[in-house]
Design a protein around this nucleic acid. Structure first.
Length: 594
DNA sequence: GCCGTTTTCGGCCCGACTGTTTTCAGTCG
């Protein structure tokens, strides 16, 4: 059972409790939901923690839920859960992933129409709505019935509560809508907030905030956005619509003097905000998007987010850190890490040119010279070319040696001409790297005779993703043990929304990497963002060093560095832990070290 | 059911919007 599935199970238990008696079980419901969200963000599989007898340190999981989990992994089910969930129709649960359906609505419908089959319940509800029977139900009406059909229709096309966009998709929507918003005289400033501002690897819906002295006017303008498919809601300070691509955009508008609390509130995360408000209660304050309610009941407003945090007795916290992982405590102690930023980056070490290396995977589309020009634009001091190794099955060892010899000479020639061209103190040095597969056996996909034709390897996994934990761990460590292997590229090999990624013992790999003076890559490709931020956070605690790379297959893609830096920031990395913030001389001495 | 820089008992974030009501329940973030 995966963490996702366990989390869903706990949420279902919470839903069953709220159906039974929401008041009576109020705090159990919150506890189960908290445990679910905590389990969802674990970096280790619960099942592994269970095997290692290590279920004691999961936040939100106490004695009671821990014992339920023990029973779950031991026997495959939990008698307490069965009792609680058995009191409602099993047909309730599939409905809970449909937007606008909560426990109460799902229960009322399944109960009244006696729906018991979880496999057909969605189709059953659709038929009932189409035949007009739902509108006749108490507390339902024509509009609710229509809304249900709408929600079911969108759900069938993939719009569930859990579907999420990758960052560039969300970013494009946000920029489009912001550009449109700024055309209105009622819009002073507009910002992208929520998980997009926190740069989470995926975004559920696009949250925007506007400061305006005429919120109604701003909302009207927002609602006239030309590329929307339908309105979801529209109030006096908030509104939402679905874009033509069926992505949800939420807006909140407040006057400029309340912009600080608005930014803070709408950036989240939910867990960060809850923790911040619990902290504020101890001081006698109550926080909301409107400002801070003081003990005497008056509302203090903030035009800047910095002032809002400062008033609570803490430093401003970078949005990427706002996940309630201890950032509030550090902000109070005025001891937050100074996060790495894009301008700290001095080189990109994972790029693919179109140099004819006859690789096992894809080539890039631009020449080395074109990629170098882009590196100069970005004011880098160095760029590493790391095309895939020549295909081992298609070539003899001799042929590979010949290809790599020519490539080495080509790079040396390129460096020579770059040195002579040096202008305006702008120069860049080319580093001769190679991305080499770690085969299932742990062997490197390159003959040893060719090792000296390259300065260093990025090693990576491109096949046999499903290996057992222990075998996978050994494979990676063996692959990284070659003295030339300095960087483990896109370590989990995940593809967001597509492939889950491998499951080795990360703790063991982190220890190896730190001890052997090697580095883990943070891959900036938006569908990868790999190492994922939560594992970066863990690896940092084990003194692992990182390199942020773009994995570009075209010069223009080197701009993706921004996304990788965001992953690093979400993992709380400072400049010291990111090796490609070093100057050329220092970086060179690391990459050539044995 | 969880948790501890006021607590091993007694607390537990805060508000917006809609559809159905005529003061609220349900959902969402």
């Amino acid at each position: 059972m995966t963490n996702q599935e366990v989390a869903k199970l706990l949420r279902n238990v919470a839903a069953a409790y709220s159906i039974k008696d929401e008041k009576k079980y109020r705090f159990q419901i919150i506890a189960y939901q908290k445990a679910a969200s905590s389990i969802e963000t674990l970096t280790k599989q619960l099942k592994d923690l269970y095997k290692e007898d290590d279920l004691n340190n999961i936040p939100g999981v106490g004695e009671s839920i821990k014992n339920h989990l023990l029973e779950l992994f031991k026997t495959g089910e939990v008698s307490h859960f069965r009792t609680v969930m058995g009191q409602v129709s099993q047909a309730v649960f599939p409905l809970l992933d449909i937007p606008s359906f909560g426990p109460k609505k799902a229960y009322k419908l399944t109960e009244h129409f006696n729906l018991t089959n979880p496999k057909t319940v969605i189709a059953d509800i659709k038929k009932l709505a189409q035949s007009g029977q739902i509108a006749e139900l108490d507390t339902f009406g024509e509009k609710s019935q229509k809304d249900i059909l709408q929600a079911l229709d969108e759900y069938s096309k993939g719009a569930g509560k859990t579907t999420r966009m990758v960052l560039p998709v969300a970013n494009n929507i946000a920029q489009e809508v912001i550009k449109y918003l700024k055309k209105s005289k009622d819009v002073k400033q507009a910002y992208a907030l929520g998980s997009l501002r926190r740069m989470k690897s995926t975004v559920g819906d696009v949250d925007l905030a506007v400061s305006s002295s005429n919120p109604q006017g701003a909302i009207e303008h927002f609602m006239n956005y030309p590329y929307k498919s339908r309105m979801i809601e529209k109030g006096t300070i908030t509104a939402s619509f679905l874009t033509s691509g069926k992505q949800q955009v939420d807006l909140m508008v407040l006057p400029p003097k309340q912009l600080g609390s608005l930014l803070q509130h709408f950036t989240g995360s939910k867990n960060h905000n809850v923790a911040l408000r619990e902290h504020a209660i101890k001081k006698g304050y109550s926080l909301s998007e409107k400002g801070i309610k003081l003990k005497n009941g008056s509302l203090k407003t903030f035009s800047s987010e910095e002032d809002f945090y400062n008033f609570l007795g803490m430093d401003w916290i970078a949005p990427e850190m706002r996940e309630n992982k201890g950032e509030i405590e550090l902000a109070i102690k005025r001891n937050l890490p100074k996060l790495v930023s894009l301008s700290d980056i001095k080189g990109d070490l994972h790029t693919h040119s179109n140099y004819p290396i006859e690789p096992s995977h894809d080539l890039g589309i631009n020449s080395m010279q074109e990629m170098v020009d882009k590196a100069l634009d970005l004011k880098y001091e160095y760029i590493g070319f790391s095309e895939h190794n020549p295909s081992v099955s298609m070539h003899t060892e001799k042929q590979i040696f010949s290809i790599l010899s020519k490539r080495k000479a080509h790079i040396e020639q390129l460096n020579k001409s770059l040195k002579n061209q040096k202008t305006n103190n702008k120069n860049v040095r080319v580093i001769n790297l190679l991305e080499v597969d770690i085969l299932a056996s742990g062997k490197i996909a390159l003959p040893e005779s060719c090792f000296d034709l390259v300065d260093a390897f990025l090693v990576s996994i491109h096949s046999s993703f499903g290996m057992e934990k222990k075998a996978m761990t050994e494979r990676i460590i063996k692959g990284m043990s070659s003295p030339k292997a300095k960087i483990l590229s896109h370590p989990t090999a995940r593809m967001i929304n597509n492939r889950p990624g491998i499951n080795p013992d990360w703790g063991e790999i982190f220890e190896f990497v730190a001890k052997a003076n090697k580095a883990l890559e943070i891959n900036s490709w938006p569908e990868r963002l790999d190492l994922p931020d939560d594992l970066v956070f863990e690896a940092k605690a084990k003194n692992v060093k990182f390199i942020i790379n773009t994995d570009s297959h075209a010069a223009s893609q080197m701009d993706n560095m921004f996304y990788g830096v965001s992953v690093a920031r979400r993992g709380w990395l400072t400049k010291n832990e990111v090796l490609n913030t070093k100057n050329d001389a220092d970086f060179s001495s690391w990459i050539n070290s044995k």
